[in-house]
């Protein structure tokens, strides 16, 4: 079964953690994740500048590790990311901003990637809110 997973919440929201646990369980059950699409506040879940207190789970880091480990297609909405200050090297240079907080394995791209993933996948699962 092919899954497309869309995440609408930041790493500190419990829904970001639920999305990660769902994605892990999907792969563990032998299913495929065609794409992860981070949209709206979900772009914060891909930021590499997040500092989590030591006694809490670093969900942003866990996401990055998960995507790298399984070589998944982790796409961050470029319009949502720019307006929230989540920039990769190219965008930071383009808009002359001092910080870069989006690195591999994440890729900035457009909403078309979500549409494409929905067409390819058997199921679209969205996570967001609290």
């Amino acid at each position: 079964m092919k899954f497309a997973i869309a995440l609408y919440s930041a790493a500190h929201a419990p829904s970001s953690r639920r999305a990660l646990r769902f994605a892990e369980a999907a792969l563990a059950s032998g299913h495929e994740i065609v794409r992860l699409f981070f949209y709206q506040d979900g772009v914060h879940s891909a930021s590499s500048n997040i500092v989590t207190p030591q006694d809490e789970q670093d969900i942003a880091q866990q996401w990055a590790t998960f995507v790298s480990q399984h070589q998944l297609d982790g796409v961050v909405c470029i319009a949502a990311a720019l307006r929230r200050g989540v920039l990769n090297e190219d965008e930071a240079a383009r808009y002359q901003r001092p910080g870069v907080n989006l690195k591999a394995p994440w890729e900035l791209s457009g909403l078309g990637q979500l549409h494409d993933a929905i067409q390819t996948a058997d199921r679209l699962i969205c996570f967001g809110g609290p």
């Binding site: 079964m1 899954f3 646990r21 769902f22 892990e24 369980a25 999907a26 563990a28 059950s29 299913h31 058997d122 199921r123 679209l124 699962i125 969205c126 996570f127 967001g128 809110g129």
Partner: peptide
């Protein structure tokens, strides 16, 4: 649990969050 959540998302035709 989460594996059962994955199974439910397949058992039903659509998942509406």
């Amino acid at each position: 649990d989460y594996p059962a959540f994955v199974e439910l998302s397949i058992r039903y035709d659509k998942v509406n969050s």
